[in-house]
Design a binder for these strands. Structure first.
Lengths: 200, 200
DNA sequence: CCCAGATCGAACCGGTCGGTACGACCTGGA
DNA sequence: TCCAGGTCGTACCGACCGGTTCGATCTGGG
């Protein structure tokens, strides 16, 4: 029965609901690990509706990735904002938040990196690059506030730690990945903001 | 024409040739980005031959990943061995070798990580985990020889830098990724092998 | 010299996938 | 009240994919 008796017709809400429900499925099974048919069945939505809102499966995937990137970045930025004024505390907050993520049973690595590895499509790579840009901006900001001599380099090195920790947590061993990365990040921050050691 | 006139019949060599030729194609296009039919055409090999040697496409993929993991690890280990006795030099050699890889026009990230992101199959994840183990062993060895207080932790942090640098080089900006990671790695090594700073 | 077996090329199969079409039904605004 | 259009369920389509089979052909060891 189309348009169930009590439901309100609200295209925008339908679209948002599809996006929200499809995100964890595509994340868990992989972009090509679940077909449109099964996706729609589990979503409780007809193919026609999905295609009206997103055009193609790629359209859904890209909308999903954009939304996820923004959501995750906002989540990290909030963690940083809640950590107070000390840049070292802010940096530690980033990795504490990451460890929380790694401990989630549904954690399967960074969705954007996974997508870029799966879909050799330029649009997806662009979303991934923008995602890394967002992270880099956050980390460079911390580096700058900490007074690093070269905030851009330090930010990039911190980005490598973030992504490296995520990879290791996803494919090797999640336990302690965030903590170890945090220690390394704080060591780098300290080294980059300390004048050259006179003993050298 | 089957078994071209002048060719020698040598199954082991055929298998090795398939593996060698298929590897760059699967790496460049992605595991699901190229079908068995096209693969065989480009390889100049019939489907029957491929299936005789590898059983399934997954069999080919796994054999290819195993071989690549060993090859890459050996390549890195040789770079380390050629760097002399100083652990810091050995560590630097790792990242110099990585930068060489990043600068290769066909560089598309770590094949094992890509595979694990694409194929949600346990066997592939296992190969990826073993690959990270090999890297970890190499880096922990360097950490130990450098006299780090906790070589296992430092090794893991260095592994994060390696994988993080590879991710950043693949999806963000390859230029300088190896150098930045090397600087960070040396800073971590230095911090982990220096007694606590008395000024703290 | 002859046979086991490696290889080729091409046809073929069942299944799945992304995407479309259609008739029916329900809601909300004019 | 009526109509535009959002939604459903289902059937359908063409393309492709992994894998099998078969007859023909060539090599190398006994």
């Amino acid at each position: 029965m189309p348009v169930p008796k009590g439901s309100t017709i609200d295209p925008a809400r339908t679209r948002a609901a599809i996006l929200e429900a499809a995100t964890p499925m595509l994340y868990e099974r992989g972009l090509d690990g679940i077909g449109v048919a099964e996706l729609c069945t589990r979503l409780g939505v007809s193919k026609e509706t999905l295609y009206r809102h997103f055009g193609t499966k790629d359209g859904l995937v890209q909308a999903m990735l954009e939304a996820r990137s923004e959501r995750v970045t906002r989540w990290l930025a909030e963690g940083v904002a809640a950590a107070g004024q000390d840049p070292a505390d802010q940096l530690a907050a980033v990795f504490d938040a990451l460890q929380q993520w790694y401990d989630d049973p549904v954690f399967r690595g960074c969705a954007m990196l996974n997508a870029a590895a799966q879909h050799h499509v330029e649009a997806v790579r662009a979303i991934t690059a923008r995602h890394l840009d967002r992270y880099l901006e956050l980390l460079t900001g911390i580096a700058g506030r900490a007074g690093a001599a070269d905030p851009h380099t330090l930010g990039r090195q911190l980005l490598m730690l973030v992504e490296g920790a995520t990879v290791v947590a996803a494919y090797h061993e999640a336990a302690g990945a965030g903590e170890h990365a945090r220690q390394a990040a704080l060591a780098l921050l300290s080294a980059a903001t300390t004048r050259t050691d006179p003993r050298d």
